[in-house]
Design a protein around this nucleic acid. Structure first.
Lengths: 337, 337
DNA sequence: CTGAAAGCGCTTACAG
DNA sequence: CTGAAAGCGCTTACAG
């Protein structure tokens, strides 16, 4: 690896001039600039990022906090891959790289600080936090950190912290209204865990849409699930066992919806004839599992790009607080309703 | 952020001693070490990684090369998320972090060198390359790079390069023998793109298993797919249109297998009654799509952990070449056969 | 076991 | 428009 000193010697200039070519090129004369650029190519010079970071305190690195502890189920975010692609692509448009922060270390004496410590050690420019479906105490320390942070599906705000999430209540209302339009009146819901923000919001949206249409929602029509297949399956069994079972169900997540559909067929009944089902997310499987799952689609790529943009905004205007982003949701009608 | 100098002053020692506490603790006296550790906690000292990397040339960073250009279909690796979790977890066990390298920049004058340049700029300790299903010229330059590299599903080797892949031929043979045991004799295959390594190997394994059982494989029973749903669907339509259609099909990927099953039902025939189907991968959907897809499971987490181990091995013994890893595959029988 | 000092490869006021 | 020089925060022979 050639160093800046070698290139400077090679071109007969000072290291300061070389440095300027790579940082404030407009300030060096056209002729010199070209000579240095050519020289860099010839001897294979590339600025060393560590030296640069040490001198400037900017690493052009964004940390990704994604807790994948297998002991918690939350690691399996339903469409992380698409978020990741969009995030990575958007960030690289701004010259930023994504650093995946190592999983929580249980031996860590002060786990609450672990992300902030990573920020300091690696001079991270910012942080993106993906909800792991669990309330992680370390996340709370982030809100008043002095590094730009954007959380996905997690309600944290602070002077340099904002979040991106779907219009969960609106999406759930969309689902409810769709079922009402299909003529249903006995409509139940399988909710997400109520301590999660999306779980709570989707129930709220569903509830008020029914109320708005003057349709009652008996307590036994609200069953809490866990966002996974087995939770949806178990919840649907309970609903089917009711003396007055629902004719339609809104499951607050596609996996639960698929589990629910399975419970319906195991009971010898049919989707959508006996029970109509609407999900939430629009994961890949939704289109593949017969008869096709009607669902509320989230803007998966939107999560990634919105997060990148929020980050860059905060990086540019360190003073200004950054407004949260609410991504619109869409109803996708398939065979299950 | 406290610096090493501040901590040294705080504890009344030299910066060299502080540095030793964090690098070669055994060399400093128990008493001094404890005092410095306590001091570090008090004033919140954390070694700065950039300074460290600059001084040592080791970044403890592993670059992840995963080309997600949306113009190519390959970005959608079927089980990347699981690989990623396993990789990240295994790496952090060795004190390594994962840096996602930015996507290819089409304006890059020398795209072939882009990963090596990232290695140099960020002083990466190693590289993990995920097959994007396409022959990327930049990957070829890696084989004789002087940085440890491990490729997933990509046949590159070199003094510091190795790969991890499934026993594709063995898995395909497993599939073939399973269908033979079920009594089938007219067995076709929907292959992956033959320029991909897994695609080619699976066909080879399938072919020789049939040959070993004395079963003929007519040319029209071999249809090339693209690893995606639509490719499997189209291929199956061609197979069904044959004058003498097969009674069983081995699709070299689960998505193709699901597309194939769909084509079967659209033709008014049944799986497995009219046509039995075996896939490859064992992606999540395989268990969910009725009647359940019999498939050859790959060891998804194994990819990640094997890659991490190979990397660490090469890091430890820079001289020794590292043997490639072949992960065993398993037959999972479900309703489709 | 500990310290003084050079060096890692950059950036950036400060002069000119 | 360009250069000399200090500084970013560490590590590591070299002495003692």
């Amino acid at each position: 690896m050639a160093t800046i000193r070698e290139l400077a010697r090679h071109c007969g200039v000072s290291v300061a001039t070389v440095s300027r070519v790579f940082n404030t090129p407009e300030v060096v004369s056209q002729e010199t600039r070209q000579r240095i650029l050519d020289g860099a190519r010839q001897i294979g010079y590339l600025p060393n990022e560590s030296a640069r970071t040490l001198a400037t305190k900017k690493s052009h690195l964004v940390g990704l906090v994604w807790d994948t502890d297998h002991r918690r189920p939350g690691w399996r975010h339903p469409f992380l891959q698409e978020i990741l692609v969009a995030l990575k692509t958007a960030l690289s448009g701004y010259g930023l790289h994504l650093l995946m922060l190592a999983a929580a270390d249980s031996t860590d004496p002060d786990a609450r600080q672990r992300y902030l410590r990573a920020v300091h050690r690696h001079s991270l420019d910012g942080l993106v936090i993906i909800d792991n479906g669990d309330r992680d105490p370390a996340v709370l320390t982030l809100a008043d950190a002095d590094v730009p942070c954007v959380a996905l599906d997690l309600r944290v705000t602070g002077p340099k912290t904002t979040y991106v999430t779907s219009d969960n209540a609106g999406g759930a209302a969309l689902a409810a209204r769709h079922l009402i339009e299909r003529g249903h009146r006995r409509i139940a819901t399988i909710t997400g865990p109520q301590q999660t923000w999306p779980g709570a919001e989707r129930l709220t949206g569903f509830r008020s849409a029914l109320a708005g249409a003057g349709i009652a929602l008996p307590a036994e029509y609200v069953v809490e699930g866990n966002f996974y297949l087995d939770g949806g399956h178990a919840a649907m069994r309970r609903l089917l066992a009711l003396p007055d079972p629902p004719t339609a169900v809104f499951a607050a997540g596609d996996e639960m919806a698929i589990g629910a559909m399975r419970a319906v067929s195991e009971a010898g009944r049919h989707v959508p004839g006996d029970v109509a089902v609407v999900g939430f997310d629009d994961i890949d499987v939704a289109a593949l599992v017969p008869p096709g799952l009607t669902t509320i689609a989230q803007d998966k790529a939107g999560f990634g790009t919105a997060a990148a943009e929020a980050l860059v905004t905060m990086l540019r205007d360190p003073g200004e607080p950054c407004e949260p982003t609410r991504l619109p949701t869409t109803l996708i009608v398939r065979g299950s309703t």
